[in-house]
């Protein structure tokens, strides 16, 4: 546990070395959010049919996706991928820890540290915007609690997927391929680009069973009150189930690979 905290602390330290990058990232996400909202604005004001989700909720949904971008498993841990590419991964195998759990701790740190740092300013700005672009606070305390809990569930799914990306680098040396593929899948299927409730009915049903919906869609719809508090247990269990499955899958792939791992070079 102490090692876990220590890993998170070192990641924070690392992040604070790259303050400018963090600010730049925040600004980019803010602009992305604005663009998406303008598209949604046009979409909502030109359509007469009944919408599956209110405009207000859709805006909040977009901001949530942008603020929590750092938490999405859209890339691997660059540090670990570099360790693998350069062979420094040898040292990781010399630590008296289960490698999966060690990397999980690093994934956890990777997903929480920058998100904590970047999301707060985005939330504050998004709450202060003019009414057409403004993010709204949850309707009641129970929605907020449900959001916190499901965000934790999202974090677990995110860390297990991140770890799988890290581990695949052991097979492919360069993690670029899976990373490009996954970043598109994750951003679209989680609802970050277009809120999932606005997807076609059939697709929506399929997506709701995939782990990606647990990343953005579920926490956000609790936040906006679209999903009622009494369904919290079901949704949270759905997230946990996926997290456990992905955890087992990751452990399995890694343990299989460690046995015949060859670190090349002198």
């Amino acid at each position: 546990m102490k090692a876990f905290i220590s890993i998170i602390r070192i990641r924070f330290n690392l992040l604070l070395q790259y303050r400018i990058a963090a600010i730049a990232g925040g600004v980019t996400q803010f602009f992305f959010g604005m663009i998406m909202i303008m598209v949604l604005y046009g979409f909502y004001s030109s359509s007469d049919g009944e919408m599956p989700m209110s405009y207000q909720s859709a805006i909040t949904y977009i901001w949530m996706g942008q603020a929590m971008l750092g938490m999405l498993p859209w890339n691997g841990d660059m540090e670990i991928q570099n360790l693998i590419r350069t062979g420094n991964v040898s040292y990781e195998l010399l630590r008296p820890m289960n490698l999966y759990n060690y990397w999980f701790a690093r994934a956890f740190a990777l997903r929480t540290a920058p998100t904590l740092l970047k999301s707060i300013p985005i939330f504050i700005i998004a709450l202060l915007l003019p009414s057409d672009y403004k993010m709204h606070l949850p309707p009641n305390v129970s929605s907020f609690i449900a959001w916190i809990l499901t965000t934790f569930g999202a974090l677990m799914i995110s860390c297990t997927i991140t770890n799988i990306i890290n581990i695949t680098t052991l097979y492919s040396i360069s993690g670029d391929g899976i990373q490009r593929l996954l970043s598109s899948i994750v951003t679209i299927f989680s609802g970050m680009v277009v809120p999932l409730p606005l997807f076609p009915e059939k697709l929506k049903q399929i997506l709701s069973y995939l782990p990606f919906s647990g990343l953005v869609d579920i926490p956000t719809r609790f936040f906006t009150g679209e999903i009622a508090f009494n369904q919290l247990l079901g949704y949270f269990c759905f997230q946990c189930l996926w997290a456990v499955l992905l955890y087992i899958l990751g452990q399995w792939i890694l343990n299989r690979k460690i046995k015949d791992l060859i670190v090349q070079g002198g």
Partner: peptide, 12 residues
């Protein structure tokens, strides 16, 4: 020193 601190916790 940061690396040392991390190793301290990893090796308990």
């Amino acid at each position: 020193i940061d690396s040392f601190e991390l190793l301290k916790d990893i090796y308990k």
